[in-house]
């Protein structure tokens, strides 16, 4: 369970400072699919980064299963991310010169796992996501949808308890986007916690809980009702 208590994030100083998050108090429950929904500039990516320990709040505290993340050093946070979290980015962030297998195995390389073992695990994850025949291909040779599935495979290979996806369908067509959302739903159903950042309320509708962000202020609520437009449209 991830808890944020009175979290603020301010970028810059003085008159030019941007208060991206304002006294955020939220909880990401274990095994739930949580969507962070908001318009562009609402602070949702910032919130995701803080939940995923990619960034630190300006003030406030972040707890992961009772452990205070804000008290950890950069190296400790890196170790925490390697063990506990998996990330899926809008821009995929795959290394184009590496093969699919090498990209997926990257968290395990960092963890110091033996080569044979990590390749086996990466292969298994890829097979599960229907990419078994793409193992030896370079990431640059894949389509957008395939790249995002490889990105998801990388986020899952080290068996994290939390998967964070930042606008994963942003660069995909609707078909691929739907497939990716279905995959994330499947991951959440398997017992992992999934946090989705999106501005698309249709994608947010897949989630069990929604954190609605507006101008840095967060409000937690249950799932979106079918056809509901949270922006009031």
């Amino acid at each position: 369970m991830i808890e944020l208590r009175n979290v603020n994030k301010i970028y810059g100083k003085g008159d030019g400072a941007v208060h991206a998050l304002k006294d955020v108090n939220i909880t990401v429950h274990d095994g739930k699919f949580t969507a962070i929904l908001g318009k562009s500039g609402s602070g949702k990516s910032t919130l995701m980064n803080i939940i995923g320990a990619l960034d630190s709040p300006t003030s406030g505290e972040v707890f992961a299963d009772g452990k205070c993340l804000t008290a950890l050093s950069q190296n400790e946070l890196a170790a925490y991310r390697n063990k506990t979290t998996g990330f899926v980015f809008q821009s995929f962030y795959l290394e184009p010169t590496f093969t699919v297998l090498e990209n997926v195995a990257m968290p395990l390389i960092i963890a110091g796992m033996k080569r044979k073992e990590r390749e086996e695990r990466a292969r298994a994850v890829l097979e599960k996501l229907g990419l078994g025949d793409k193992i030896k291909k370079r990431a640059s040779e894949l389509s957008g949808g395939q790249k995002q599935r490889v990105s998801i495979a990388r986020a899952l290979v080290h068996e994290p308890s939390l998967v964070l996806a930042d606008e994963p369908t942003g660069n995909l067509d609707s078909k691929n986007g739907s497939e990716v959302m279905a995959l994330l739903r499947e991951i959440a159903d398997s017992g992992k916690s999934v946090v989705l950042v999106t501005h698309n309320h249709a994608d947010a509708a897949c989630a069990d809980e929604v954190i609605f962000l507006k101008d840095g202020v967060a409000a937690m609520r249950g799932p979106l009702l079918p056809g509901e437009d949270p922006y009031g449209g």
Binding site: A78, R81, N82, F89, Y93, R154
Partner: peptide, 9 residues
């Protein structure tokens, strides 16, 4: 990307 998935300084 490596740092995001856990590479330290």
């Amino acid at each position: 990307m490596m740092k995001a998935v856990g590479l330290n300084a």
